[in-house]
Amino acid sequence: MDEEYDVIVLGTGLTECILSGIMSVNGKKVLHMDRNPYYGGESSSITPLEELYKRFQLLEGPPESMGRGRDWNVDLIPKFLMANGQLVKMLLYTEVTRYLDFKVVEGSFVYKGGKIYKVPSTETEALASNLMGMFEKRRFRKFLVFVANFDENDPKTFEGVDPQTTSMRDVYRKFDLGQDVIDFTGHALALYRTDDYLDQPCLETVNRIKLYSESLARYGKSPYLYPLYGLGELPQGFARLSAIYGGTYMLNKPVDDIIMENGKVVGVKSEGEVARCKQLICDPSYIPDRVRKAGQVIRIICILSHPIKNTNDANSCQIIIPQNQVNRKSDIYVCMISYAHNVAAQGKYIAIASTTVETTDPEKEVEPALELLEPIDQKFVAISDLYEPIDDGCESQVFCSCSYDATTHFETTCNDIKDIYKRMAGTAFDFENMKRKQNDVFGEAEQ
């Protein structure tokens, strides 16, 4: 370990593993360490099931009705991949897709007046949907046509809207959309967690709705994908990429100290040895004095023996409960997957309800979601602090990732990755940087 590296990475969460992969592909010498004996950090999948019970201090362990412990891979952080989103792009560019198998999530649902409705995925579904009345549908269709044709580089498509100054509230007004449709559009399509976006320039919202539609167009059922064997497969896929390009991995490796000289990182000390480096990437748990708390998320993992009611017996789905429907500031989400994804025993389902904490009784906040899941065989409640770095790391060369937020997709995580890359490399992130180099010394032969 007593060696000189360009970059040392602490923690094998998804953000850290993707950055480690990119740095290795770009010719950097990388050492990647984790104090845990497993990959994934906060974003790991726990197996066998006995391990999950232990982690949540349920000492009696799983009953026999849960089947074989080894058949379970339970995500600690519930997220899906947008089919046309940035993480899929990263997987394709790096060819990490060859280590993973994905399934399309069967449906996306939205909560309205105590019931759940399928988010329409085709024009026919939209016309048949009970989510809105006849005239509302016509106006909504006009709005969707506007979004589909919108091109930020072609003012002819703006229809009198200025993407940089017109607020989204004004765009909704222009198409005369009612409150329910606005809730549905902002939260189930643009996937905002709160209503803060309404008074911001509309460009980002329009682009988010386009991303949803384009992702949906790829597979038809929903815009989301999920990897077989759980999300823990993602960091491992990128760790393989890093290793192929010469990255060194050490799990179960305690970090005793991060060594600084004149305010700059110069190395990491572990078990009496020092590895030197020019730059350091880590998750917040490794540098508690360089991060601040930015809120909390509650996630309740529920094991069920039945599909969720009114989802047409889907073996995977997402449910969004827009905040307006339950008098909150932030949406509540449910991600459900099952034995069909090799993450649970035969006939079992895993539904994870999550939201940003707003009160001193977080469990009560998630109740509307839990009511949709009854009866629940077993619950595991996790309340996590969200951390963000206190500075950009440019001076110390210590670059810290943000905690995983309450969103049900990876777009915010990818933004964090691109942002850290830019601060480390001094140049904007470009997907081309992730391409495997042809015929290089570490390149794998085609399968």
Rank of each mutant, 00 (worst) to 15 (best):
D2R: 05
E3D: 06
D6I: 04
D6K: 04
I8A: 08
L10V: 12
L10R: 03
G11T: 01
G11W: 01
T12I: 01
L14R: 02
L14M: 07
T15I: 12
E16D: 02
I18H: 05
L19Q: 06
I22L: 01
S24E: 02
N26Y: 12
K28W: 14
K28Q: 14
V30L: 05
V30S: 01
H32R: 02
R35L: 08
Y38W: 09
Y39W: 14
Y39C: 04
S43T: 07
S45P: 03
E50V: 13
Y53Q: 14
R55W: 08
L59P: 11
E60W: 12
E60K: 07
P62A: 12
E64A: 03
G67C: 09
G67M: 14
R68L: 07
L87I: 13
L91H: 00
L91E: 03
Y93C: 07
Y93H: 10
R98Y: 15
V104D: 14
E106W: 09
G107R: 12
V110I: 06
V110S: 10
Y111C: 11
G114F: 06
G114A: 05
G114D: 09
K115Q: 03
Y117W: 13
Y117E: 03
Y117T: 01
K118E: 03
T124P: 04
S129P: 06
L131Q: 06
L131M: 00
F135I: 07
R138S: 06
A148L: 09
N153M: 15
N153R: 06
D154H: 05
F158C: 13
E159G: 10
G160C: 08
V161I: 10
P163T: 00
R169Y: 14
D170N: 10
K174I: 14
D176Y: 05
L177R: 01
D180N: 11
D183Y: 05
Y192C: 10
R193C: 09
T194V: 12
D195Y: 06
D195H: 04
Y197S: 03
Y197N: 11
P201F: 15
K210R: 09
E214R: 04
Y219F: 07
G220C: 06
S222I: 01
G230D: 01
L231W: 02
L231F: 01
G232S: 07
G232C: 10
L234Q: 01
G237R: 01
I244N: 12
Y245D: 00
T248I: 10
N252V: 01
N252G: 03
P254R: 05
P254H: 02
V255A: 06
V255M: 04
D256Y: 06
N262K: 06
N262G: 12
K264T: 05
V265A: 10
V268M: 04
V268S: 14
K269G: 15
E271P: 04
E273H: 03
E273D: 07
V274M: 12
V274G: 03
A275F: 11
Q279R: 10
Q279E: 01
L280S: 00
I281G: 14
I287V: 13
I287L: 06
I287D: 11
D289L: 02
D289Y: 05
K293N: 07
A294T: 06
G295V: 07
Q296L: 11
I300C: 01
I300F: 07
I300V: 12
I301W: 13
L304S: 02
S305N: 11
P307H: 00
N310M: 04
N312L: 14
N312P: 03
D313S: 13
A314P: 03
N315G: 09
C317K: 05
I321K: 13
I321R: 02
P322N: 13
P322I: 12
Q325Y: 06
N327P: 04
S330W: 05
S330K: 13
I332T: 04
Y333L: 07
C335D: 11
M336T: 10
S338T: 08
A345V: 08
Q346E: 05
Q346K: 00
K348Y: 14
I350K: 07
A351S: 04
A369F: 06
E371C: 11
E374H: 13
K379E: 07
F380S: 04
F380T: 05
V381D: 13
A382T: 10
Y387H: 07
E388M: 03
E388L: 14
E388V: 07
E388F: 01
P389F: 13
C394E: 02
E395A: 05
Q397P: 03
S401N: 03
C402H: 10
A406P: 10
T413D: 04
N415G: 06
D419N: 13
Y421Q: 06
R423C: 11
M424G: 04
G426S: 11
T427D: 13
T427L: 14
D430S: 11
E432R: 14
E432M: 15
K435S: 13
K437Q: 12
D440Q: 05
E444R: 14
